[in-house]
Structure formats: C-alpha cells, structure tokens
Amino acid sequence: MIEEAKTKKPQWAMVIDLDRCTGCEACVVACRVENNIPTVGPEEAAKGRSINWIRIERYFEGEYPDVKVKFMPVLCQHCEEAPCEPVCPVYATYHTEEGLNAQVYNRCIGTRYCANNCPYTVRFFNFFDPKWDAPLDKALNPEVSVRSRGVMEKCTFCIQRIRKGEEKAKDEGREVRDGDVVPACVQTCPTRAMYFGNIGDSESEVSKLSKSNRASRLLEELGTKPRVIYLNKGD
C-alpha cells in the first residue's frame, strides 16, 4: 500500500491500537495545546464549530442490557490518495514527499471544498478569528502558527515535531528512527495506544504493526490509502 520509495524521505504513518484505546481523550487535549487550537465557546460550539484535530468517535451498539461501546480516535488519515487535495483550487492543501497531507494556511482562500471531499470529516474551518482571552495567549506554542479566520485547518501529524526530529537525525548523520518524532497525541496517550514512525522503514514499529492481522484502515473501499492504521480489538 505504500507509495514506492521513489524518495529516501521518511514516510510518516500512525498506528492506533483500538484494543488499548480507552477513549480517555487525553490526546485531544494534548493536540489542542500543542497546536494552538482555539476553543470557540458554547454558542459557537452549539453550532457545530468546535475544533478538534483529533476526536474520539463513540458508537453504542446493541440495546440495554447488552450494550457495547466502540471508541475510535479519528484524525487526518494523511491519505496517500487524498481526496481533499485535487479539489483545492489554490494548492493550499497538497501532498508532501513524506506522505503528509500538508495544509498551507496562507494559501487557503476558504472554499471549504476540501472539507466536503474528506470522507473522514477531519477538516476544520475557522469561521471567525480565534480568540484567547489574555493571558491565555501566553500559553501558545511559538512553533505553530495561529490560523486566522476563513482558513481551513487539520491535523498536521505535528509537523513541527517532525521537522525537529528530522533535523536532529540529520545533525547526527543518520536516518530517522523510532522515537525521533513523537506527536503530542502519541506522547500523552495514557494507554500507549498510538504509535508513530516511518512506515517506509521496514524495521520501524509502525511498519511491523501495520502488517498485523488486526490491522485495517478506515473506509479502505474508497481507495484513499490512509496512513493511519487501526489495530482492531480481539486476538
């Protein structure tokens, strides 16, 4: 499923073990803090404008008393064949050589077309300018830009952390390896349900896990080739 290694660049991917994930949402908050995601307040949230680059979808199955619950963390799947990309008229969202679905805020003119064509509904629009009541703005991460109104945003796989990890590997004159890049959500996960790494490297943990018989991808039938791999429950 992986794009042929035309490039030596790392191919970033994530694995989420649904058997471990408890739906605790620590990852959701971690992502918000790391990536300067604004809260929109109750009025806006009631209109469905709250932003969470990663969310935990919860599904009840069955009827009382035989109820089962399924939790599924959903973030941008960084699809190899990303349907969000071709529809953007101004190349504000495009694919990088490292397999990331990148979003250039400054290019985006806010057609919201990409969001409509993302089958995973992981794109978020800034309906208004973001607001942090002072001094909450002091907690903003200086390495992540704050998005203005009218632009689209979504999970970046913590691009700022990827850059740092890659630079470090380069400084040390080696390829990136597991542990060089740890996105904020992966870092905090209290059940260690998430893994991140270079799926182009057959020795990496994500590579190995992606070959597990529990592995699957969301909406595989659409041919989007997601770079987020889910490990199902059970043995």
């Binding site: 209109k47 404008r49 806010g110 919201r112 969001a115 509904t121 629009f125 309906f127 109104r149």
Partner: peptide
C-alpha cells in the same frame, strides 16, 4: 467584517 461565522454553515455542513 465579522467572518463567515455569521452564516449558519458549520462542520460538516460547510456549504
């Protein structure tokens, strides 16, 4: 002046 938020559009109804 205010932004597209003055419309009723939201996520997922972007249009």
């Amino acid at each position: 002046a205010r932004g597209l938020g003055v419309w009723g559009i939201n996520r997922p109804v972007f249009w």
